[in-house]
Design a protein around this nucleic acid. Structure first.
Lengths: 232, 232
DNA sequence: CTTTAATGTCATAAATCGATCATGATCTGT
DNA sequence: ACAGATCATGATCGATTTATGACATTAAAG
């Protein structure tokens, strides 16, 4: 799973550690800073996928950090969730109007924060919220129709794409050529079963083009399977 | 900007009227129903831009309505804000995990609800919130109907403008010609799907007129997508 | 009313894909 | 080691999909 990059801007060390722990457990790649200025620098450097921003921080106010994030090109579309002790309606509304995507009032439960982050990410980067398929070092974004291996993009034709998707949906399973024809070509295709071989080959070629082991296993007299651990 | 269509699903008539009044004052085109089943029918008919959904309604539960909206093609991406009397963390999390985009606890102030709706729309359909859209070196002012690339103004016909706007709202996503017809021409247009090709071409021509790489990606047998990073 | 711009459709060219076959390699059981 | 079966691979040619230019019709502007 490609980790989503999260930036936490929070000057209560105990709290930020707690949050960090929870999100790292969820597989996020978390960066923490207590300082507004530093947050802006960090964000400019390595654009995060989502920002958790405390309203009351040293230096710049959270509101100001949010505003500046919005104004700078690479971070203009990064979702921001405000964390705050204030429960006043007036403040909530100001936060939202400044461009925050959501607003969570302290004290909050980590689980709810995780759920809200997931809801926001589901919108912005479906790839980060389960619309993607992963296996070993392969990553398929089904929404953008892109495939990567080890971070490098792989070009696939339509049939190879569908074939790989089906394999990725059931990693490890061995599929007979007949079942692959059903699943990938459709139940009513009167296609030569051996044609599957050819597409498997093309898929292998594309996937292994830039090195790496062959993760498609041929199971003699049975079919094919996705399998990174080939030691039989 | 064409008024954003809102659907309110709420069986407390007094409350739904109050909300309706507030949003109509904000320029929304509001449709109200107290019933879950009817809500689904209505939504399928004329896809709303945002749904306010009471958790406790007659017939289907709000949660179930949300789930079904998410499962059906045209409404799968419509943002949903849950309204509820329950303040329990457990419920909030279930709501968010079901696919709700936000969660507001009764009693709430209309102003805050308006702010939250604006925040959700800004994130999901920035064009409806009167925001400008940016992607790579493209900049679209949805209010003034002006488009620039690399600072230089680009002339677009109305259809190309709507097409580009839709692509800009979901950069990276691959849309089939059918979905583009729905989104750009309307659900009930009986237009030849291949016509999309022609408008894509016209859009490309206009955008690339003054140089620069083609940021519209053709995905064979799938559709088109906005994509500055074409290294497939 | 004339002129201009926009739009949908079609025909054709160009690009890409994909099914099949022929051949050589590899495996399996004996 | 051998025969038969199974699989890998490269090439090919037709089929499918997309790009493009032209045109007729309609709507908008002057």
């Amino acid at each position: 799973m490609a980790a989503a990059k999260m930036m936490i801007v929070e000057d209560d060390a105990a709290l930020s550690e707690l949050i960090q722990w929870h999100f790292e457990r969820e597989g996020f790649d978390v960066r923490v800073t207590p300082d507004g200025e530093e947050a802006l620098l960090l964000a400019a450097e390595e654009t995060p996928d989502i920002v958790l921003l405390d309203w009351m921080i040293e230096g710049l106010s959270g509101l100001e950090v949010c505003r500046r994030l919005r104004r700078t090109a690479p971070t203009a579309n990064v979702p921001v969730i405000m964390l705050t002790a204030r429960g006043e309606e007036e403040d909530r509304i100001r936060g939202l109007e400044t461009g925050a995507d959501d607003y969570v009032t302290k004290p909050f439960s980590p689980r709810e924060l995780v759920a809200r982050v997931a809801a926001v990410l589901r919108r912005i980067r479906p790839a980060l919220a389960g619309e993607s398929l992963y296996y070993a070092d392969i990553e398929m974004d089904t929404v953008a129709h892109k495939v990567k291996r080890d971070g490098k993009p792989i070009a696939l034709g339509p049939t190879e794409f569908r074939l790989l998707r089906h394999l990725l949906e059931h990693p490890g399973w061995v599929f007979s050529r007949e079942r692959l024809l059903d699943a990938v070509w459709g139940h009513d295709s009167d296609i030569e079963v051996r044609t599957v071989d050819v597409h498997i080959r093309r898929l292998r070629q594309a996937i292994n083009a830039h090195g790496g082991t062959d993760i498609i296993r041929t199971v003699r007299s049975a079919g094919y399977a996705l399998d990174a651990d080939r030691r039989l």
